[in-house]
């Protein structure tokens, strides 16, 4: 995978795909998409980057250990469920608030937080597997 074209394009392709994955994640509640699909898209992006530029580059780029990202995701998802208990409704009940940011009403909810958690778990866990496989595969 030492093609110059591929290596030149990969960073742009990866950034676009990660951006797209976040878009898919956030629009998931009303249009096709969501945390799981978004996460998978992001993992593919990282896999492409890894094949093109090497695993070390990817690890530097995402800064955290992939498993730490997955752990943070699981933590966020659990917190999203626990917030409901603090509000004295059953575990995992979706709670919504509509703050106004710069004059635009933005719906925020524990459900969104939960979906972000799913996204992070998928990204972390699967990219961790893919990256460790790529690392050894090159030997």
């Amino acid at each position: 995978m030492r093609s110059v074209i591929f290596r030149a394009v990969a960073p742009f392709l990866t950034s676009l795909m990660v951006l797209f994955s976040i878009f898919v994640l956030l629009r998931g509640h009303n249009e096709p998409g969501g945390g799981f699909i978004g996460g998978l898209i992001a993992v593919s992006a990282l896999a492409i980057y890894g094949i093109a530029c090497g695993v070390e580059t990817v690890r530097r780029a995402i800064y955290f250990h992939p498993m730490a990202i997955a752990g943070a995701g699981l933590f966020a998802a659990t917190i999203a469920g626990l917030i409901s208990i603090a509000a004295r409704v059953p575990f995992m009940t979706g709670l919504w608030i509509y703050p106004s940011l710069l004059g635009v009403e933005v719906p925020l909810s524990t459900v969104t937080l939960f979906d972000c958690g799913v996204y992070l778990v998928v990204v972390g866990a699967i990219s961790s597997i893919a990256l460790s496989l790529e690392e050894r595969g090159g030997e």
Binding site: G28, H29, N30, G34, G35, G81, S109, V111, D115
Partner: peptide, 16 residues
Amino acid sequence: HGANVVNVIIVDFRGT
């Protein structure tokens, strides 16, 4: 509050 039924099931109705 979601139009995408599949996603709503995943993250809300069957969130646990």
